[in-house]
Design a protein around this nucleic acid. Structure first.
Lengths: 315, 315
DNA sequence: TAGAATAATGACAGAAGTTGTCACTATTCG
DNA sequence: CGAATAGTGACAACTTCTGTCATTATTCTA
């Protein structure tokens, strides 16, 4: 094994161990302790953040942030990294320090000039756009740590209708369409609810998760993909061609959408009863491009809304 | 300069040059040609993709993809890269090969075990969620190349109401909420329109951009942030508290939203006349939580819609 | 307090690796 | 054919690396 190889291997080993002695490494790499000491000195000079303590219980330790062994990326991988970072750049808040992402731009300077240009050119043409939300989520980082540590939190939450104090056990966080959401088991309502992080006004207390058996998914992905509330209400809505097109833009309803070769289509799906209100609001602007077939409750809801609108606008 | 340093420098130089001869490099690094030949052999054995041609006009060339010189990342930078890549993982289509992103996972294996675990743990708790759109954009990659090359394209496009053939000059592409959009100068309509990439049914022809002076923004970002259609219509909509909360979720209208300390608020902004229809549809479900103050045209539009609904649902 | 374990440094000789030179072959282009 | 190129082999000079030994200093533990 050449010296260069050994140095790289050493970086990996050191990062993995965090704490070690010169003697250990000497055994591991089958070289003398003296050589290891020289190597460590070299790594240190190259900026590798290790420090040492002499004495019987002494040894080497990693100082601050670990530096990972150098990785050689191919051109297209490098481009992909920039793409990915670009996808985050329009988020107002991220659950970790934004500087970390921007530091990655040092990477850009390592690339050959023509690649730099091609990346700039691509960034002129492609954007992962997120509508600007005008609302900050100052507690995002705190909620992130609570979720990671599987803690519970007592929060002051301002919902559409009221402001309340609740104790929640977060499942995790997800960003959608520029807003951050936190599905969490609410110990007040005894079920999983979704909280908008920008509407959490205050974290009153963070504490270890109280003991007990809560039906909380193991990962946020699992929550998003599989669970969610029970579907206990069947809806059938007939659509015209125009109605179908509009509906395709909405992921939730599009899931139950079937189109007819003769034109038009139908939404036929099971939904949560609590979503009925949302469905009514969603198809209201469809006008006569949508016709509610089932349930009668939905038709009634539509009529109520129309009546209310009629009163409000037509006096 | 040590051998190791020289090899790294050589990788950079080679990548920058793409074509070179052993003699050139020998001069550049002030070593003998023989040494360079030995170095090149070593790089080749390490997997560096170069090939050579003997003969008077011969030399070395880069084969396939360039491999960039190794970069050492810190732990938090590495985490950030994974975050960023995660932000892309729910896109059905990306304008470049998806494998590129997943290949990056080789990177994960280079990390110390505990970091791998912490990344996994974070990925269990954080997701950049994009609603599943049920509609593919098979022509995304083609549109990407057309946009990058500043070409024009003749497309068959299926809008909400009709299917037409148009010749467009793309400004670029943007992804929003899981769908890809292509703002482009339409040579049929003589203005910039936004096309949904999944609704482009066919690219009939790609050709160089026809000469002429088109009012096309230099970058997609510029388009999204600054331009957009002219605002020629003022709207004023009064909102209750509930109306304000609902409105805050919508970036476009939230831009013109002012809230009163006494409760409630008002949307007061200039919009494009063509957006009136959209505004009407948007605030229709607000019921009496929204009251249109201006313009009369909007009130009239609302009344029409309500009338239509009344006919449709209340017979 | 002595002893063991640790880091750190210096000197030096032998081992290992690197480099330049020279000689040579083979290929390609004009 | 001649010039320019890649590629290989041998070898000596040079450089770097490594192990050994000796030494100092620090810290913990028995």
């Amino acid at each position: 094994m050449s010296k260069a190889e050994r140095l790289i291997e050493m970086m990996i080993t050191i990062n993995a161990k965090k704490d070690f002695t010169a003697g250990e490494l000497a055994d591991e790499f089958s070289v003398s302790k003296r050589t290891i000491l020289r190597d460590l000195q070299e790594l240190e000079q190259a900026g590798f953040p290790i420090y040492s303590e002499v004495g019987a219980a002494g040894g080497y330790h990693i100082l601050k942030e670990r530096i990972l062994p150098p990785v050689a990326f191919s051109e297209s991988e490098a481009k992909a990294i920039f793409f990915a970072c670009q996808a985050l750049q329009f988020y107002r808040d991220l659950p970790f320090e934004q500087e970390t992402i921007s530091v990655l731009k040092k990477f850009l300077n390592c690339l050959p000039l023509d690649v730099q240009n091609s990346i700039t050119q691509i960034q002129n043409k492609i954007v992962f756009w997120i509508p600007d939300r005008h609302c900050d989520s100052p507690l995002l980082k705190s909620m992130f740590h609570i979720a990671i540590n599987c803690h519970a939190a007592t929060i002051r939450y301002s919902s559409t209708y009221s402001e309340r104090t609740r104790t929640i056990i977060p499942v995790g966080l997800y960003a959608m369409n520029g807003l951050w959401y936190c599905p969490a088991y609410c110990t007040t309502a005894h079920q999983i609810r979704v909280f908008r992080v920008d509407r959490i006004k205050e974290i009153i207390e963070e504490k270890p998760c109280p003991k007990g058996n809560y039906p909380i998914p193991a990962s946020i992905r699992e929550y998003l993909e599989k669970t969610g509330p029970k579907n206990d209400c069947r809806i059938k809505i007939q659509l015209t061609d125009t109605g179908v097109k509009r509906c395709e833009s909405e992921s939730f309803l599009a899931g139950g959408l079937k189109t007819f070769s003769t034109g038009g289509g139908i939404i036929d799906m099971e939904i949560n009863h609590a979503s009925l209100e949302w469905v009514a609001d969603y198809i209201l602007p469809f006008g006569n491009n949508a016709t509610v077939l089932e349930p009668a409750e939905l038709t009634e809801l539509m009529r109520q809304k129309i009546y209310e609108l009629h009163q409000h606008y037509c006096k």
